[in-house]
């Protein structure tokens, strides 16, 4: 499997006025294979949205490598990067804010097609019509304006705009979070269809683990600017090692009162620390249900592969049995060297 997108040691920092820099993304590495959907989970402020924005060129990259088809976006001139970034298209959470209210639907989608350049008027029109049809909008939608549509239909317009530019990768940032559950199902089905028809790769950001489980084959959990656990989605969600992943799972309510009563509740202490002033060492130690002395908390954890493709931040505060996981990681490493 060759990676279509590779992110290595990416740092994104925002400068506050005279204050310490906000470390929104603090050393993240990930890769996306052709045709794969990668789920990105975490709570507000964890940096998951900033990460996809940085990939799109919408957030300031402080350091790191962003390889798109092997070429480093972070080292290109703005002009060069603009040319290749068409391969990346994004769908945002709020379909009310992401569409220009003064433009017709046709105009919105055509703008994205024209931005790629090299197409004549009739070709642009054909691509627009094709995109609208593909997302299931009625033919008369083209001449109407966004406000005439419901939230779900608007999200279809946003998706039409994204796919009309023939992207290789679709970045969906909480793309179904603002939608009602019945509409959410329609949009998730639509994205699955498009992905198959257009052979798209996807990064799907969501705070909702049931959505992540449904759409992705591999996932990463972020906490305070860092990935704390990643791996095959089924493995991560059925047997999470990191206590944060477990807490997220146990906090997601299910629509079954019997099941809900039986579930183990793993409550975290307090609230996430601020990325402007992260605690030293292991940032999760301050919220972990497993309390550790400050001297232990201030030592950073190690992010290691503990089972094939399954990585976790190992620290006394983050996992049940750090020694066993270190041993598993050592064994895996030794095995790789021998093989």
């Amino acid at each position: 499997m060759s990676a279509i997108l590779e992110v290595k040691d990416l740092f994104v920092r925002y400068r506050g006025r005279g204050k310490a820099a906000v470390r929104a993304v603090d050393g993240v590495s990930l890769s996306l294979a052709q045709g794969e959907t990668l789920g990105l989970a975490g709570e507000s402020g964890c940096g998951k949205s900033t990460l996809v924005r940085a990939i799109m060129g919408l957030a300031p990259v402080h350091a790191g490598i962003l390889l798109l088809n092997g070429a480093d976006l972070a080292r290109m001139s703005a002009k060069e990067a603009r040319k290749v970034r068409f391969a990346l298209q994004m769908v945002f959470q709020d379909p009310y804010a992401s569409l220009d209210p003064s433009m017709s639907v046709e105009g919105i989608v055509a703008e994205a097609v024209r931005a790629r350049g090299g197409l004549g008027k009739t070709e642009v029109a054909a691509k627009v019509a094709q995109a609208l049809e593909m997302v299931g909008l009625p033919p008369d939608a083209a001449s109407r304006r966004p406000h005439e549509f419901s939230g779900g239909q608007r999200q279809r317009i946003a998706i039409a705009r994204a796919v009309a530019a023939d992207p290789q990768i679709l970045l969906a940032d909480e793309a179904v979070s603002a939608l009602d559950v019945s509409v959410q199902a329609q949009i998730l089905n639509l994205l699955a269809d498009l992905k198959a028809r257009r052979n798209l790769s996807m990064i799907f950001v969501s705070h909702d683990l049931s959505v992540i489980r449904h759409v992705s084959t591999r996932m990463a959990v972020m906490y305070l600017g860092k990935i704390v656990e990643s791996g095959p989605t089924e493995k991560v969600l059925s047997r999470p090692f990191h206590l944060y992943t477990r807490a997220l799972l146990s906090a997601s309510p299910v629509a079954d009162p019997v099941e809900q009563k039986k579930r183990l509740r793993l409550l975290l202490r307090g609230e996430p620390p601020s990325p402007a002033n992260p605690p030293p060492g292991c940032a999760f130690a301050w919220r972990s249900p497993k309390e550790v002395p400050a001297s232990v908390a201030s030592i950073p954890g190690r992010f290691r592969e503990v089972a094939p493709g399954h990585f976790v931040e190992i620290h006394p505060a983050t996992v049940d049995d750090p020694e066993a996981l270190h041993a598993a990681a050592d064994a895996l490493e030794a095995n790789r060297k021998d093989g």
Partner: peptide, 11 residues
């Protein structure tokens, strides 16, 4: 409509 069944399937 809530995603809960087998992953990747049609909702």
């Amino acid at each position: 409509s809530i995603p809960a069944g087998e992953p990747g399937g049609r909702l």
